[in-house]
Write a protein that binds this DNA or RNA. Sequence first.
DNA 1: CCAGATGGTCAAGCAGCATTGACCATCGCA
DNA 2: TGCGATGGTCAATGCTGCTTGACCATCTGG
Lengths: 157, 157
Amino acid sequence: MDHDEAMRRAAAASTGQLLLKAARLLDETALSRLAALPGAPPVRPAHTRLFPHLDFTGVRATELAARLGVTKQAVAPLVADLVRWGVVEQVPDPTDRRALLVRFTPHGLEALRHGLSLLADLEGEVAADVGAERMAVFRDVLVAWIRRLTEPQRTQR
Amino acid sequence: MDHDEAMRRAAAASTGQLLLKAARLLDETALSRLAALPGAPPVRPAHTRLFPHLDFTGVRATELAARLGVTKQAVAPLVADLVRWGVVEQVPDPTDRRALLVRFTPHGLEALRHGLSLLADLEGEVAADVGAERMAVFRDVLVAWIRRLTEPQRTQR
DNA sequence: CCAGATGGTCAAGCAGCATTGACCATCGCA
DNA sequence: TGCGATGGTCAATGCTGCTTGACCATCTGG
């Protein structure tokens, strides 16, 4: 039944599926390596998605929510966790007494750096397998995917 | 504050983060394109993860669960959905009267083919941007990531 | 032949991540 | 000045994707 066989192979091996699988594995691995660290707080994927939008200057929770595409209520408990863990702190916005700015603490920056190094380790392992050049191509194509997927929706080419 | 700036950039641009982001976008896009189809059943990511392990020959639910790394109870409702939608059917295993084999219906195969073509469209769009060669490299590196991440755990190189 | 392993189902429950709705304080502008 | 928009919080709720536990039918090997 080669018809069947062909379909099964196609289903298993589409590049898109590979992409999804790799990401899922990466998520699990990075998080489990993080969890294996002594004294590490129970960081969840929802927290890590916050990091690219944090800095030392301070960002409003509302702004974070907007950038993530979720409600401010969804962000609040995540920020609360990070505050409890000492990763970020909330300071009053000098320009608006309603607002609080979320910004890294020095300790949080250190933790971020460490978390990134875990990702970098993994990346290094893969790069060692495939070579720096191919890794660079990989990265470029990844950016192309993101660009294409981020573009204003058009369902047909 | 270039220290800050550097960290922010680093957090936003690590290849691992890009990989995760691309996968998340791909997931959303593919599923939303699927949902936009008239009369399409409400397929969820959990269902799509089943497909690579289905065929015309038939697989046991237990086997599916084992391959996905979850319990058989987790698989059961997913299979039930697919049966309800006419995508797969369950037939008695001739070699074991306890067991049921889950296998594609012709309609299900058609649906799978269509779903894959949605993924293929996206892939084609990206390939058109970066070229077939670089796309092939991308795929190879993806496989390298998966191989590395699937390997028996070793926390240090 | 029967004891333990295995395939499958039902039931209850939980964690993670998000939602809507209501509310208060403050802001900014006509 | 005062009214609508905005930043933030609390509370309730919902969905998804899984889990554990208990149970029955059937299989398999000593």
